[in-house]
Design a protein around this nucleic acid. Structure first.
Length: 420
RNA sequence: GUGGGUGUAGCUCAGCUGGUUAGAGCACCAGAUUGUGGCUCUGGGGGCCGUGGGUUCGAGUCCCAUCAUCCACCCCA
């Protein structure tokens, strides 16, 4: 019985790995433009970090974590998301003691035990950014502008930006009370999930997708209408800044983030065309998180992008061309007695930053030409009896089909002329 | 965790109501005279028909289980 990749995981093989490199490069370049620098954290952490940092009532923590004991009986967990680790690192290294705000990005695999489907894997990849140490609504705006610019730089324009504010602990608590008094009379009509949400986190009832629940709550007040003056002003400044930047958003009263730590601004990017898992990115402000993780009372804000979902979305973009790899030079070696010299020639080419390759399977001359063609070689350099004995190379331009002979010493410059 | 669809060569699939050595296209490899590619032609290698049981004289084809995958719920990025 052959071993296969575990459920919900997959391999990225060469033509596709190019796509990954392509989008990773664009995303990182864009983050740099906004002044964000990379942080790399461990792929596993103490389980406790996620319990506190993500929230003990969330689905992620209660049923989706890859938790295991190591040989010293520590409880460790493969990271299900990236924010908690960033917060931990911020506190552990007292980074907040330096220049603020701290602006980081990260990228890498995350792990959630969930049932796989399109756009959802057990090992998936997120790119995320975090900014710590500023309450400014303009930083909220910057984060969203970065997210939007990444999408634009990738060529994605058919997205929806949903925006809401979930308030601060003070106004959220008042709203929570109001919400409970509204839910209580209709509690029996709600789905079982919502009935338990009602106990733990009544806000989540608002984004239930079940039709009966939607019906039951249609006349409920929105948190937006109960924000305190500070939160209201904060949200308005975020919105007006986005408007000034020409960024279109949809105010979404039902947008309530699933993770417990969010405060104020919350946002999501949806690309409906990629299927049911249409949330390509999402994030928001989390002013209480750093303190909850044992650090000082520092605000934070960030977002994460789902790489697999971005890839799905890019498949639907007509201008998006698959980057393909090609080759500058294929060296056709016509007799195996020149193998050693051939390796020296390759070394010279590669040292001169010319992408070069040859055959290693004993192909005939003709087969080597075919092979060179398949590799997308721009030039074939022939190395046979005549060439070696008389000290030159035959160079064939595969596009024009023209051939010329150049002296061995001039091979590099001759090739560079054709490539240029 | 729940419901439904699918599982035949590397890839996309065909295989009628169960019947002899399981097929095609693409891909791969080799030839079409002596050191030359993209087209064409010829030939070739490749399949425990997802896995394990069962029914039957006989199963890729029927039944059950299991695994994987896809679609949706759920959740989230």
């Amino acid at each position: 019985m052959q071993v296969k990749a575990p459920r919900g995981t997959y391999d990225v093989l060469p033509p596709d790995s190019k796509k990954w490199q392509f989008i990773e490069q664009i995303i990182e370049e864009t983050a740099h433009l906004f002044g964000y620098n990379e942080i790399r954290t461990p792929v596993f952490e103490h389980t406790e970090l996620f319990e506190r940092g993500v929230g003990e009532t969330t689905d992620i923590v209660t049923k989706e974590m890859y938790t295991f004991q190591d040989k010293s009986n520590r409880s460790l967990t493969l990271r299900p998301e990236g924010t908690a680790s960033c917060v931990r690192a911020l506190v552990e290294h007292s980074v907040y003691g330096g220049v603020m705000p701290v602006k980081w990005y990260y990228s890498g695999p995350m792990f959630r035990y969930d049932r796989p489907q399109t756009g959802r894997y057990r090992q998936f990849h997120q790119f995320g950014v975090e900014a710590f140490g500023s309450h400014s609504p303009y930083l909220d705006a910057e984060i969203i502008m970065l997210l939007v610019q990444i999408l634009h730089n990738l060529g994605l324009i058919d997205y929806e930006l949903h925006l809401n504010s979930v308030g601060c602990p003070v106004c959220r608590e008042t709203y929570r009370q109001i919400l409970i008094t509204h839910i209580n009379p209709v509690k029996e009509k709600l789905c079982p999930d919502c009935q338990s949400r009602y106990e733990k986190n009544p806000l989540r009832v608002l984004d239930c997708k079940i039709e009966d629940c939607k019906q039951a709550i249609t006349d409920f007040p929105f948190i937006f209408d109960h924000l305190c003056d500070n939160c209201k002003q904060h949200y308005n400044l975020v919105k007006s800044t986005l408007e000034a930047g020409g960024i279109h958003y949809l105010h979404d009263n039902n947008l309530v983030r699933g993770l417990d730590y969010y405060t104020n601004t919350a946002f999501e990017i949806h690309i409906p065309s990629i299927g049911a898992q249409s949330a390509v990115g999402g994030g928001g402000r989390y002013n209480g998180l750093v303190k909850a993780c044992g650090g000082p009372d520092i605000p934070g804000i960030g977002f994460a992008l789902g790489m697999e979902r971005l890839l799905l979305a890019l498949d639907g973009v007509p201008e998006y061309k698959e980057p393909y790899s090609s080759l500058d030079v294929f060296l056709a070696v016509l007799d195996d007695k020149y193998d050693v010299q051939a390796m020296q020639v390759l070394e010279r080419l590669r040292t001169a930053k010319i992408m070069a390759d040859r055959d290693y399977t004993g192909r005939s001359m003709k087969a080597q030409m075919k092979y060179a063609d398949k590799l997308g070689a721009r030039i074939v350099v022939l190395m046979g009896e005549d060439e070696v004995n008389r000290g030159f190379f035959t160079i064939r331009d595969m596009q024009s089909r023209e051939q010329l002979e150049v002296k061995s010493e001039q091979i590099i410059s001759a090739i560079k002329d054709i490539l240029a």
